[in-house]
Design a protein around this nucleic acid. Structure first.
Lengths: 229, 229
DNA sequence: GAAATAAGTGTTTACTTTACACTTGTATTT
DNA sequence: AAATACAAGTGTAAAGTAAACACTTATTTC
């Protein structure tokens, strides 16, 4: 079956490493784990796994995220391939993906099983291999993506308040945003629906809940307009 | 040497495919070749090669571009990994890179050797496997990059006229740009140096040559300002 | 010296972004 | 029940950026 052409070519271990992101306490968090085996046993690591034969790389990434979070239907995007030699005892070519999940849906029993924890992106420890670089590139990519696509909502529950949404963007861009300008912009796109209930957890007055309405977003796009924060 | 941990993991063929871009006759061109072997023999293909053991993926891409163009010191950036199953007779995971080269430096003898040719990006034939998708993603990435980084100059000779530079950006964005606004913007950054000579090939009046001065660009950045077209 | 042709040049208008401070609603305290 | 504390919620003006637009200039060719 294998063509003669491939006979003398090298084969490589190929892994996926996933930057699994969640949002909690006004900050982006990343799921990291203590590596349970050599090399680099005990070092902080992203969630990863090997790509199998007969499995697309995208599917492998999806499998890994589901395995470590218990969450399905996840928003993911490829960050890129990292293929320096000496990444590992044997060279592994790794393809990084970031995933945006609703941290509330996270199956916490898996955290114990894999010795995994959510760490604030501003307080990440040094990670093994080139994982810190992967995170850096991810944040960069996320900043550019979140500015023009409504992907931030994947990090929130179905209902969220505008103060929460704003703090999400502040955490992504790592800078403060003016409250009035932010509200003006997000509401002017008319892609959110205001609920009747308020969230009273973080203020006495309470903040109204909103929902992202995909149909309204599709409409916006159809009009030749764009999402932009 | 190989850790016991890797014993049962699958290994994969990993290739690099390069979207080698040049600029000529007011249009972006891509170097493509008739594939000389099965599978897909005779189909139009990007320039590619396999990643060797003990070679970083970046180095493999660099090696491939040098092999097919004869040009060294090339501006390259990774586009991403393409890892669907059934890409090939056996599955090959491919990592795409785009390269921006000065088409005048191209070693044309290599074109015959590899049955390669420069094709206008607007007139690309259907390419094999997912190569057409790679080109599409590249153009997308290039549009975003060229808007904020002075990478377009890699496609030009050291001296170029403003009409040429403008037509380069028009070809990248695939839309017309206003002449006065373009000049205002590019000149206001003060990153170009005007020469005394003119290019008289495309007009009687002649257009002054300019050069991109990296030191001026670095200065711009140091001032907290940004390149932007 | 007239014609042809691409290079080169400024200003006005519209739009987008930024800066900025007070009022409102509600739970808690006195 | 009045006062307090606190985050939510609201509008306008100024500055900056982007977009639209048409004529003059330099040079070769006829």
């Amino acid at each position: 079956m294998t063509s003669i052409f491939y006979q003398n070519k090298d084969k490589h271990y190929v892994a996926v490493d996933c930057i699994i992101m969640g949002f909690r306490d006004d900050e982006l968090h990343i799921l990291v784990a203590k590596r349970p085996f050599e090399p680099m046993q005990g070092g902080w690591s992203l969630m990863g796994g090997f790509v199998n034969d007969l499995e697309s790389v995208n599917d492998a990434a999806k499998r890994v995220v589901e395995e470590f979070t218990g969450i399905e239907d996840i928003y993911m995007e490829q960050v890129g391939a990292f293929g320096d030699v000496n990444r590992d005892l044997v060279r592994v070519i790794s393809i990084a993906y970031y995933a945006l999940v609703d941290i509330e849906k996270f199956d916490t029993s898996l955290a114990e099983k894999y010795d995994a924890r959510w760490v604030k992106i501003t307080q990440l420890p040094e990670l093994i291999f080139d994982h810190s670089l992967m995170v850096k590139n991810t944040l960069n990519l996320l900043q550019r993506r979140a500015a023009v696509k409504p992907i931030g909502f994947n990090l929130l529950q179905e209902q969220f308040t505008l103060p929460t949404l704003q703090s999400l963007y502040e955490s992504i861009y790592q800078e403060d945003i003016d409250k009035r300008n932010f509200r003006k912009k997000i509401l002017s796109m008319d892609i959110l629906e205001k609920m009747d209930e308020k969230d009273k957890n973080s203020s006495r007055k309470g903040a109204y809940y909103y929902r992202f309405i995909k149909e309204k977003y599709d409409q916006l796009i159809q009009q030749g307009l764009h999402f932009s924060i």
